[in-house]
Structures are given as C-alpha cells and as structure tokens.
Design a binder for these strands. Structure first.
Lengths: 253, 253
DNA sequence: ACGGCATATATGTACTGTGTATCTAAGTCA
DNA sequence: TGACTTAGATACACAGTACATATATGCCGT
C-alpha cells in the first residue's frame, strides 16, 4: 500500500484533509434525549413529558434538551435528568444517535440518546415531583424477536403515541438492556437497595420478554456472588415473606 | 402523578417545549467517521488515512467526513467508505458518538462513528487503491480487560499515534466486536466467502484477545448450524488441507 | 388454636455445552 | 517410503441449567 502521503484533490479526500473552514460545512442542532427506565410492579417504565407545543402537541415525549456549547454529551444528559426529573447521580450510558433528516419536522436535529436506570423509589420521586412528568409503561412483546416493536401505555393501559421517533428509541433501549442482562448488573440498577429474588426475576423476565425458570434463576443468582443476604425479610405480604437481598458491591471473594 | 399538561416556564422545560427558534440554540459540526475492520493474517486491521493538514498533520486518522444537509448518518458513513476506500455494500453499524468539546482543536465537532466489517480481499483492494490509504494493525492486549487500551501499529510493528481521539474509537470498536461475537456472525463478515475452521478460530481469538480451545470451538461452530461445508479443501499448504466452509445464509433447519 | 393456602427455599436428577485427552486421516516433503 | 504436520473424530469429565419434588414458613379464615 502507498506509504507516502500525497496531496489529493479528489472529492472524498478534500473534504476532510483540506484546511478547515467552518463556513464550508453544514451545522446541525444537536439534542440529547434520555430514556429513564425503572422497574415498576414488574413492568419497565420510562419517564415521559407531555409536549405543549407543536409538533406533536399534547403527545408524550422523552425528556431532552439541546446540547450547549461547552458541555459534553454526558453532561447534557445529566443536565436533562436534573432539570426534567430532578434526579442526580444515576447510572447513565449512551444508547444511540438518531439523525434521520426529517425526524423532527421543524428542522434537522441530531439526537444523541442516553439511557438511565433507576430504582422504583427514585423513579416515583421524579414522577410525582412539581414538574408535569409522566410514567409510561413499556410493554415488551412477549417472546418477541429482539428489538421487536414495544408499546408504551399509561397507567390505565391505554396506548400512548409517542412524539417523533421516540417509540423506536424506547424499543432500542429495551434491546440494549436485554443484551446487557447477562453480564452487567442491570437488574440491580433497576431495583432499590434491597429486593427479593422474585422481584429480581420479574425484572429479568420483563427485560427479556419471556419467563425464566424460577429455581434455576435463584441458583444462578446466588451462585454469581453478586448477591448478599440482608437477614431481613419482606413484610406486608399475605404469604411467607421472602428474604431481602442487596447487591454485593465488592465482595472479598 | 400529574396528568394535565401545564405550561411551565422553568428553565429545564422551556428549552424543549417552547417554540422552536433555531437561532436560540448552538449548532454544531457533525462528522461521521468509519472504523473499517478486517482480519489480516490473524490480526485485526483498520483502514487509516494520513492527514496532510493541521492538526495532527502527518499522523494517521480514521476515514471520515462531515455530514451533509440531507443525508442520513448511515448514508454519510456509506459515502465515506465509497470515497475514501472505494468500497460499497459492506456491513455497517453505528458504534458510538464522540462529542468532547475539545476533541478537535479547531472547533467543536460531534463525531458519529460507524464500524464496518469486510473480508481480507476487500480490505486489501481498498488498501492498495489509488488513494493514499494505509492499513493499521490492531494490537489487542492479550488477556486484557474489556475495552483495555489497544495499540495500532504499521506493517513493521511500529506504533502509530492516531489523530484526535481515534485510538479510543478503535478500542471501542474492538470492545463492541467482542461483545457481539457470541450471538452475531461477526467472524463471517471478517472472512471471505469460504474459510477454514482454523481461520475462523483465529479471528475469534484476535477479537477476544485470548486463545480458544480448538476442539470445543470446532464443535460449537458446527453445532451452531451457521456453517455449511463446501466439499472443497484448502490448497497450497504443506500439511493436510482443511475443509472449506461458508456461512449458511438461511438454512432450512 | 388450627389447618388450609400461597409462596419461599432446599434437594435431586437429567440434559447440554464445553474443556481436555487420545486416536486416526490426509496431505507435504526429505 | 516414512517422518512430520495439521485436520478431524471420538470419549470422558465437569459445570451450569432446566425441571421435578419435597419441605419450610408466614398469613388468614374458621
């Protein structure tokens, strides 16, 4: 292969190697949206905001905001969570970047999407704060193919038509969670400080979209060394209460 | 939670729900870079271009280009591959978006990175074309942790200092490949139409950064149903030739 | 107080995938 | 022709998991 760099005027080369002149290139609005996910009563839920302006006025949308000049993408996502959901210090990870030219009818917007995982208590605190935030339940198609179309419904089970391509985004978030379930402590992020094994199982089932064998799941989790028994038991149930576990941050192995 | 949308003038709400006025928000240069990966002689390689302008003049960089007004992100990645490597119809997938404010010293650039997987023949065709493209060998730290620092070296083994944050980007591409190896036909994309089981094993070992058991690997691959024997054998080797296999696109199960 | 009920938790067994070792097959080359 | 090298097949041990069964423990109605 050619070792000596040479000046090329070919179209493909020029645009990248030539002197940079900002005015020569298009500039784009960059937004950062966040899929805030929690496990509520066995279902995955995501935080939504009702739009009060066109387009998609009155419809639900993921919380988001436009990127500012000197902040990183992750800082923008953090800011969105802080401003829209009054949440800080949550697990945050970049999901995907959506850039279809007409995904926003007003102007072209490149949206870098992050997803965040919180436990039920934090989610409910956000969803009942001063701001008009809503909770959308994610209905994952049972036994569906990976990345199949998820539906988002309200508390009464009515389907919510999400603004923009946000339904696709939620679907991709679930798909990502599904892939990480095996090797990352996803379930723990979605549950509170303590939880029962059945609760953890429900979360896994919801993310996977299929039932898992109870006994196998229990043994696998206990054998993983990631769980730590608290010695305390569930209360307020009309049957034998289950042991409460917590996530073992760093066991001495 | 509050059901009735109400107008909010709080800072966090306003920026997203208020009437959209493009002039109110920053606009950013958006680039699309491509990590073109192939398996060459057991090593992963990636396509690089030598920069002939500041910054990082004379250093190697991933092929890339700025996003145009009406093309999708994927179309931009396709265009980059066509222009810089004269390649078309390759497997392409979005990797990650890098947006650190000072990653490009000239101006802020949001870079949406795609990775592409090609077989050795296509990679060599690109790397020996008219354009001054180069091949960088990816040295994955053996037995290293996921996402550990990879090094990129030239044909003589000399370390290449990549421009911008492109070394990080290559590292993330390898990390992604590693994660997909178990459930996606990554190896097949990196090999040609036909290949021996040992060649497939070498690719897996390179991506994983560790040796895999030969017999187990063979059995696992044959049991997966993704392989199809061609009936033909390797030639030009000084030992017993191995059977050539091909990827079974859609087996009748 | 007691027994039914529902769920938690423990134990046992079969199956499957993988690691490892050993043996045989099929080429090249001196 | 026989040594050498790698391909490919077979056998066995082991671990993880699915599945089945048995026991424990709390609540609740009578």
């Amino acid at each position: 292969m050619s070792k000596k760099p040479r000046v090329s005027t070919a179209e493909g080369e020029g645009e990248f190697l030539a002197s940079y002149d900002p005015s020569r290139f298009e500039r784009f609005s960059v937004a950062v949206d966040v899929v805030l996910v929690a496990a509520l009563e066995g279902d995955l839920s995501t935080l939504l905001i009702v739009r009060d302006e066109h387009p998609y006025k009155g419809q639900h949308a993921l919380p988001g905001g436009f990127l500012k000049k000197d902040e990183t993408l992750e800082e923008a996502a953090t800011r969105v969570l802080r401003n829209k959901a009054n949440l800080g210090g949550v697990y945050l990870e970049q999901l995907y970047t959506f850039g279809e030219p007409r995904r926003d009818p007003r102007t072209r917007v490149i949206s870098v999407v992050y997803y965040a995982l919180v436990d039920e208590a934090r989610f409910r605190a956000a969803a009942t704060g001063e701001r008009p935030v809503h909770s959308g339940r994610i209905r994952v198609p049972w036994e569906g193919e990976t990345g199949g179309p998820v539906k988002v419904v309200d508390e009464k089970g009515r389907a919510l038509a999400l603004a923009f391509d946000h339904a696709d985004i939620v679907g991709m978030a679930v798909k990502r969670l599904r892939g990480k379930l095996d090797y990352a402590p996803v379930g723990f992020q979605l549950l509170g400080e303590t939880f029962t094994l059945l609760a953890l199982q429900r979360v896994h089932e919801t993310v996977l979209g299929r039932p898992v064998n109870k006994d196998s799941f229990r043994r696998r989790m206990l054998a993983s060394g990631q769980l730590e028994a608290t010695g305390r038991a569930q209360s307020g149930v009309d049957h034998r209460p289950a042991e409460l576990y917590r996530f073992a941050r760093r066991s001495a192995v």
